[in-house]
Amino acid sequence: MVIREAIKADLPAIAKLWNHYILNSTYNYDYEPKTADFFEKWLKDREDLNLPVFVVDVEGELAGYGYYGQFRGRDGYLHSAEHGLYFDEKFQGNGFGRVLLEHLMKDAKERGFHTMVAGIDSSNPGSIIFHKRMGFEMVGTFREIGFKNGKWLDCVFLQKFL
């Protein structure tokens, strides 16, 4: 397993994972799959902001990816990050998520972030438990904040100081 910064050649595999969670879960609140153009712009925008996307490469296969960015766009949130982690289901449960999240937190701290936030759909208890094991504390739930597949969704927020 290798953690490295994403490159343009990784975008089809990232798109496959991202779109899988759009189409098959409420973990991502988007409704429609994203296009190749979306992902090219997304990666370029992150590069322009000097914000990384990291991938987990297992023998040449992209097992998952993670990224973070400023929690909200206003100046006062400059040191608060929110992250996302997505893994192919066949690579879950083997410790790769822990290693990637540790990598994200270390990188964010080195770039001047003070705290990291995770917003997780309440129907994803595995991710909530994972984050608690990683030292994140539950700080609140936004009830019926999202709507997807004909259902109102609750989003749980967890936070960890870096």
Rank of each mutant, 00 (worst) to 15 (best):
V2M: 14
I3P: 00
R4A: 06
E5Q: 13
I7S: 12
I7V: 15
L11H: 06
P12D: 04
L17A: 07
L17D: 00
N19E: 13
H20Y: 15
H20E: 07
I22W: 05
I22P: 04
I22V: 14
L23E: 14
N24L: 10
S25A: 06
S25Y: 04
T26Q: 03
N28W: 04
Y31I: 11
Y31W: 14
Y31S: 13
P33V: 13
K34I: 10
T35Q: 11
T35G: 07
T35W: 09
F39L: 04
F39H: 11
E40H: 12
K41C: 03
W42S: 07
D45C: 03
R46L: 06
E47F: 09
N50Y: 00
N50A: 03
N50S: 11
N50I: 01
N50T: 01
P52T: 02
F54C: 03
V58R: 01
L62H: 05
A63P: 03
A63D: 04
G64D: 06
G64M: 03
G69V: 06
R72W: 13
R72D: 08
G73F: 13
R74M: 08
D75R: 11
D75P: 11
G76H: 05
Y77H: 09
Y77A: 06
Y77W: 12
L78Y: 13
A81I: 10
A81K: 04
E82H: 05
H83G: 09
G84M: 04
G84D: 04
G84S: 15
L85C: 05
Y86S: 10
F87E: 00
F87R: 02
F87H: 04
F87P: 05
E89C: 00
K90W: 01
Q92C: 08
G95F: 09
G95P: 07
F96D: 01
R98F: 08
R98V: 11
L100C: 09
L100I: 07
E102D: 12
L104T: 08
M105N: 06
K106D: 11
K106P: 02
K106I: 06
K106F: 02
A108D: 12
A108V: 05
K109R: 15
E110P: 03
G112F: 15
T115N: 14
M116D: 04
V117D: 02
V117E: 06
V117P: 09
A118N: 12
I120F: 08
D121W: 07
N124E: 04
N124M: 08
P125A: 02
S127H: 02
I129D: 11
F130D: 01
F130W: 08
H131T: 00
H131M: 03
K132M: 14
K132G: 13
R133I: 01
G135V: 10
E137C: 09
E137T: 14
M138Y: 14
V139T: 15
R143D: 12
E144P: 10
I145A: 15
G146L: 10
N149S: 13
G150L: 10
G150A: 09
W152M: 12
F157W: 15
L158V: 09
L158F: 01
Q159D: 13
F161Y: 12
F161T: 12
L162Q: 06
